[in-house]
Design a protein around this nucleic acid. Structure first.
Lengths: 370, 370
DNA sequence: CTGTTAGCGCCTTCAA
DNA sequence: TTGAAGGCGCTAACAG
């Protein structure tokens, strides 16, 4: 390991004290311009960069942010992280990545969070879809550790700034669209009911049905696993029914499950959208490339990521100020009313839905009435 | 900020010196078992975790690893990162994520690398597809900073451990397969030629053609951008040709471009694989869900990520030992012969390729001969 | 405006 | 087996 230039070396070379060098490095105003320039030159020449570790120790915190993410292979996560990384890059902070592999999602997530706090490595935490472990966040929050939560569940904990998407609304819109197209037998493939997000989406489906006066047929609801295989299995159930009872449209609570539906349709020799309409949820990047391109519900994940990280950066800045000048009440305000931002979801229309011909539309009500 | 328990608190509570606590925390052997247990109990009770920052300062390095990745939305990157994160999680290290957004890929990447080194925050660097900036890595390497490179280019720099995939071979296999199926007019959509990976894949295509005695038709080669739109445009060119000159198969240098080909085929009312065979490259997760499922070349990205991070962890361990006991020559060996591991690629057969009927197979040679 | 100095929390000799 | 003390590199408070 070659020798590392440190502040003392710079001070010696510049014929000043380390204090002065430090002041220059931190843009303090009270330094002789001439001296400052000389120091800056030497810094540049020697390629001196303050040790993050030592600075951290000295000031009590690092310019590091913990980002807790679920498996990076989940849909939308990469998009979100891309935006987050981009913004962090333009700040003096770095990202410390904690990825929760699905295997230990429930068990170890709490431990990870504990470590994040205990270790005091980072100055704040952005938790993305932490699932059950969201509970652990209260602990952090209470200790004055800035935390922002991006979640698809409702705010599970008091006082934690929360960014989410309108799952219910997205589901409602999708279902409503199908109804407007003349569909009445609209099957629904939901995600695992243990997730709040699944329940929200299901509720949106039910509400849209109810508002349109379409009775809910329990036989047309199956629980999947958000994965293509789950979608495939559920769709098979639906499509194996006698033609008169077979759904004319399927709404899947995730794009991946919708992919499964596409496979199933093929197995049954059903053409989408001619014989079967289909809507997904998430708008995975690949969904626009499916043949036919998948109509789906879009979450503004980039915007969500941006909002979340900017909020966290701000909270961190505040918590710094609070230390030094607790009287700056003006700033406190933001901390007091916990931000809870729900982003709207939108239906993106592509090629998997078709207006039902009159003929069928006439038949349907009759069946529904019996 | 609530009070943070530190080593002195623990020492006081246990009635020992901080030195002893430190010894216990680091599993030094020479501690009275009884004392050790008492300390451990208090540590557990108080939830004491040593400050990473302070430890880092004291021992001269942190348990942090820099991982430099291109946009996380690139194909295969999430899979790779998932594996890497999983392995790092089982080690005492954490990941510091440096994501190079495409906007500043060329310009700032060098700067980022400089910072990684200068800041001395992390103990090593795993650089994934750094592109041009790979040059900067030499500098790190030379200073004894452990670096491992996952790249799709050939080893661009001396002495840097390198993990890559056999792009040429994958391309060769795909082309060969098409030829074996009876295709002769095989179009190729390549990636930007500024990337070595594009040139390797192109070479594989050319070699396969040559080995089979199929003349290369320059009109059947177009340069895309690895993106769907690029694939679409190139495919249009091909498909707009008179039927006798139109390719019977297209090999795209990326799955995303293959998606574009699928769109183009649809525009021209050509059915895949009936009228046109298609092969991609990368095996994106979504490719198996395309209709028809895309035949493509697979890179073992999970294995590559695993190999790379394990190698890095090992190099770091070595560089530590070198500090303390430079005489341990046995270990040096690994450092001396720079590891260069090329993973094989494999053709995964799905539904976008079709054996050409004899009729066409007969016609083709005639055209080729003229 | 600038030098001096006391820590930040931990690890690691050096003594005992 | 343990305590004491120096120092990692930097910042901030205090003198000058």
């Amino acid at each position: 390991m070659a020798k590392k230039i440190n502040i003392q070396d710079v001070a010696r070379l510049a014929n000043v004290s380390t204090g002065t060098v430090s002041r220059v490095m931190n843009n303090k105003p009270d330094v002789n311009p001439e001296t400052r320039e000389r120091i800056l030159r030497i810094v540049a020449e020697q390629g001196y960069v303050p040790s993050v570790t030592a600075t951290g120790l000295a000031v009590g915190h690092n310019h590091l942010i913990s980002v807790l993410v679920p498996a990076l292979t989940w849909p939308l996560i990469p998009e979100m992280m891309l935006k987050i990384a981009e913004i962090v890059e333009d700040s003096p902070y770095e990202i410390v990545l904690y990825s929760i592999s699905s295997s230990n999602h429930l068990s170890d997530c709490g431990k990870v969070i504990d470590r994040i706090l205990a270790t005091r490595l980072t100055a704040g935490l952005l938790a993305i879809f932490p699932g059950q472990s969201a509970q652990h966040l209260t602990q952090l929050q209470r200790q004055g550790f800035p935390v922002v939560l991006i979640d698809d569940q409702n705010p599970p904990v008091e006082g934690i700034p929360w960014i989410g998407a309108d799952n219910h609304g997205g589901s409602y819109k999708a279902t409503h669209y199908l109804i407007a197209l003349g569909h009445r037998r609209i099957a629904y493939i939901q995600g695992p009911m243990k997730y709040k997000v699944s329940r929200d989406r299901y509720q949106g489906y039910k509400d849209a049905l109810q508002d349109a006066g379409v009775p809910l047929d329990p036989a047309l609801v199956q629980e999947g696993d958000f994965m293509p295989t789950g979608g495939l299995h559920c769709a098979r159930e639906f499509l194996a029914r006698p033609k008169a009872e077979r759904p004319t449209a399927i709404f899947a609570a995730s794009d991946l499950m919708a992919y499964g539906v596409m496979s199933a349709a093929e197995e049954f020799n059903l053409s989408i959208p001619k014989d079967l309409s289909l809507i997904g949820f998430d708008d995975n990047p690949s969904s626009s490339h499916m043949r036919p391109a998948l109509t789906t519900v879009q979450q503004p994940c980039t915007a969500m990521g941006q909002q979340a990280i900017e909020l966290l950066l701000q909270l961190i800045k505040q918590s710094r100020m609070d230390h030094h000048q607790a009287y700056e009440i003006e700033k406190q305000i933001l901390l007091e009313d916990t931000p809870r931002i729900q982003f709207p979801t939108s239906l993106v229309l592509r090629d998997t839905c078709k207006k039902l011909p009159k003929r069928v539309a006439h038949v349907t009500p009759i069946i529904a009435k019996t």
